[in-house]
Measured scan of single mutants.
Amino acid sequence: IQLFSRPDFLGDHFSFEDDQAALPASFRPQSCRVHGGSWILFDETNFEGDQHILSEGEFPTLTAMGCLASTVLGSLQK
């Protein structure tokens, strides 16, 4: 999965292949690309809070990911 700090796959980005119990504190994903398989994104660290399940594809905004525009993602799980 690739996470981007701005909508439309712009800004800083991080790529992950494994579960992340905590995303970098200063990084707030605003768009993402899922390459193969599914990922669960969580509103809180340690895989807690609301879950957003994404299958392979491109998600140019938080709302395209099924999140509110104000959502701050905290962790993710493959």
Rank of each mutant, 00 (worst) to 15 (best):
D19C: 00
H13T: 15
H52M: 06
A64M: 06
S75A: 03
P7S: 09
L62T: 06
D8N: 14
F16Y: 12
W39Q: 00
G37F: 02
F14M: 13
L23T: 05
H35N: 12
P60W: 00
F4I: 03
A69S: 14
F4R: 03
A25W: 09
S55W: 06
A69I: 00
A25D: 13
C67D: 03
S31Y: 07
D19Y: 06
S70A: 08
A21C: 11
H13W: 13
Q77W: 04
S31G: 05
L76Q: 06
P7K: 10
F16W: 05
H13D: 12
Q2D: 14
V72I: 12
Q51S: 15
L73Q: 07
D43L: 07
F47T: 00
P60M: 08
F9R: 05
N46P: 01
H35W: 12
A25I: 11
W39T: 01
S5A: 10
F42P: 00
S26F: 13
G57T: 06
A22W: 09
L3V: 07
L73K: 09
P24D: 04
H35D: 06
D19L: 03
L76Y: 01
I53Q: 12
H13I: 10
G74S: 12
S38V: 13
S26E: 15
G37T: 06
S55R: 11
I40T: 08
G74L: 11
L54Y: 01
V72L: 09
A69F: 07
Q51H: 12
F42W: 10
V72P: 12
L54C: 05
C67M: 11
P29S: 03
H52F: 13
S55Y: 09
L76V: 14
F27C: 06
H35S: 12
Q2P: 01
Q51E: 12
T45N: 11
H13F: 14
S70I: 05
S70N: 14
H13K: 12
I53A: 11
R28P: 03
E48K: 14
G37Y: 00
V72G: 13
D8Q: 10
I40P: 02
I40R: 05
L41K: 00
F59T: 00
L23W: 07
D19I: 02
E48G: 14
V72H: 14
P29Q: 01
E17S: 14
P24M: 07
S5G: 09
C67G: 05
F47I: 02
N46Y: 08
H52S: 06
W39S: 00
E56N: 07
D8M: 10
F9C: 03
L3W: 00
G37R: 00
P29K: 03
G49Y: 00
R33S: 04
N46G: 11
R28N: 09
C32V: 10
G57Q: 03
P60V: 01
Q77N: 06
L10M: 15
R28Q: 12
F42G: 02
T45R: 14
H35P: 05
P24Q: 05
P7N: 08
T63I: 11
R33V: 14
F42V: 03
F9T: 01
E56L: 05
Q20Y: 06
F27D: 05
D19M: 02
E56C: 10
R33T: 06
A25G: 12
F42K: 00
F59D: 05
